[in-house]
Every structure is written in C-alpha cells, then in structure tokens.
Simulated assay, not measured.
Amino acid sequence: MRVVLAPDSFKGSLTADAVCAAMQTGVLRAVPGAEVVRIPMADGGEGTLDCVGAATGGREIRLDVEGPLGAPVTARYLLDPGRASAVVELAAASGLPLVDPAHRDPLRADTTGTGRLVADAIRRGARSVLVCVGGSASTDGGTGLLRALGFRFLAASGAELPPGGGALADLDRIDTGGVPEQIRRTRFRIACDVTNPLIGPRGAAAVFGPQKGAGPEEVRILERGLARLADVLAERTGVAVHDVPGAGAAGGTCGGLLALLGAEALPGCELVADAVGLPAALDGADLVLTGEGRLDDQSAGGKVVSLVARLAAARGIPAVALAGQIVPPLTELHGLGLTAAFSIADGPRALAEMSESAPRLLAAAAEQTLRLRVA
C-alpha cells in the first residue's frame, strides 16, 4: 500500500512536517509494510516558507523588524541570489501568533514588519518577490507593508495616517513620489490562502476581523476603512479591488499589493503543491491523508485540504482529512472529492491539552483510518 501524507500545519500546535510524522506512526502501526510518502503542505500562510524552502533551497535571512503592534521581532525570509528572487512569509513578521491574545489591537495592528523584509530582499538584489500572505494580525489593507516600500497614505490635511486599519477611513490620497525605482521594477507575486473579497459580508473585516480580536464596532470601523482604501486605490491606479477574489487575504494586504505593486495573485496551496511535487507524488497512491487544525466552511476556499481532495479525486484516490476540530457541514469539500473527515479529539479537552496531545491523537486517528481502509 502506498500512502501519501499531505497535511497543512495544525496552527499553534504542530508544523506540517510534525503532522506528517505523527500520521506516519499511525499508518505503520496499521500497515507495517506500507510505503509512506510525506509531503508537508502549506497554503500561503504560516509554514509556507519552510515548505517552499525545503523544496527549492535558498539562503535564510534573519532581520529584526516591527511586529504587528510595533514591538521588535526577529523574522526571516528566503533569498535565492542565483535567481534574484525572494520568498517572504507575512506571518513571520506580522502574524497573529506574535500578539498576546490579551493585548490584541485589531485597529492598530499593521504589516510594516513584512514590508521591511521585502525592502531588505530587494536591497540584496531580489528582482522577483513572492509574498506569502495569511495568518496576519492586521486588517490594514497592506498599507504598513507598502509604507515600508516608500508609499505614503495621507489624510486631507496632508498628515500621514497612523498605522493600522482603524485610520483608513480618513484616507484622502496616496503619495507614490518616494517609491524607489528599484521597487517599481520588481516583480511581485502573492500566494493567497483564501478567496474572500476585500469588502462586504465575505470581506476581510467581516470574516477575519473577529479572529483578530475585533468586536462588532471595530469590524464596522475596519470595513469602512477598507472600503475607503479601495475607492482611493481605484482613483489613483484605475484598479478596483473591492470585489476581487482573494483581495481580502491577510486583512486586505493582497488588495493593496494588487493595486499599487501590480502584483499577481496565485492560490498559495497550488504554488506550494507544484514546488514540493505533490501531483507527481500522488500518482500510484492508494490513499491520501491530509488535514489541518480546523475544518469548516472556509476550508473549501483555497485551503490545503480542498486542493489535496481535488487532486486525489482526479486520480481516483480516496482522500481522508484529520483535524483537531470539524465544523459541519463539509458539503463543498465532499463535492471537491474529500472522501471523509475525522476529528482527532478523543473526548472533551481544553485547547492547550489538545495541542499537547496532538501527535498521539493524530497517530491514533491515522491508525484507525488505515485499519478501516485495509479491512
């Protein structure tokens, strides 16, 4: 039996490679002679840098930059001097896990630190930059990142807006005069992990704001700010990103980069799948195990599980997802080809306890899945 393991990370608990290791333990308990192929995956959010780096190489650069709320953090990115390219993961500098839950500030959090990484990569010779968005703490429309590259976001008085999405409703104009020619000549690509538009009921503020600590009134403030940003971007560049699928990724960062940098947005999980050779690894497989920390209605919108299910179904291979939490219905995922999904939970547990026990629970769930498959 050939079993391919292609999970995302269990965020806050296990890396994708650690998930693969736990799954492999369970598979080999059930089928000791199984051929196990481990393909750690990511979707453009946390963990993408490691997956792409393991497959393509590159030099790791570490840099002290501003975190989501301005406190210093040490972040990293990948630089490939031979190809004059870089891979920057937004979560490394501007990710939600970098903010203590008790001190989240969704109106002030921004992406300046990620912009510092991008600027450093270009200074070191990168002429093509892949920005992996996802897992952000902010809803600033990418203005922090862009500010670090020389863009200025101004109020009607001419004063520069303070950091964060909470101030964007006062945006009057965007000054591009200070953007270096080096930045203008750089090719930017964005690895997106969602298909949400910038604004509206499925937009960045409405859907992801509460996950970042925004209450109802803060969501309304962020929505107004993103709508104003979209209007000014359209006036300034002629590019309307209000309803563009994926523009809402990373608190609207994708939308800002599409309009002001001419960036090309790509489905993150597809980009990673190609880089790590997932399509070829699936050929001849008897079963695919995938998974992520939480399976819900967002999982069908450009996440790892949805891609793995689709690729497996195209080859007639059963695909089973293991997750810490499952929120039904999973109708869309099943429609994409997911055979079944199982929670690894073995009873009521606190989140911290679940995280600590995740390797053992994953191994047990993988073992039982394989026993059913070979029965």
Rank of each mutant, 00 (worst) to 15 (best):
G142T: 10
L145K: 00
R147K: 12
A148M: 07
G150A: 05
F151T: 08
L154Y: 13
S157Y: 06
S157R: 05
G158H: 11
A159T: 08
P162A: 14
G165A: 07
A169M: 12
D170R: 15
L171Y: 13
I174D: 05
G177T: 15
G178Y: 08
G178P: 09
V179A: 02
P180G: 04
P180D: 04
E181T: 14
I183G: 00
I183P: 00
R184L: 13
R187T: 11
F188T: 00
V194Y: 00
I199T: 15
I199F: 05
A204F: 11
A205S: 14
A206Y: 03
V207R: 03
G209C: 10
P210W: 08
K212R: 05
G213H: 10
R220E: 15
L222V: 11
L222Y: 01
R224Q: 15
R228E: 08
E235L: 12
T237K: 12
V241D: 03
V244P: 01
V244G: 02
V244L: 14
P245D: 06
P245H: 05
A250M: 09
T253V: 10
G256K: 10
G256R: 02
L257D: 00
L257H: 04
A259Q: 03
A259T: 02
L260I: 10
L260F: 06
A265I: 04
A265L: 03
L266R: 12
E270Q: 15
L271F: 08
L271N: 02
G277W: 12
P279Y: 10
L282K: 01
D283I: 13
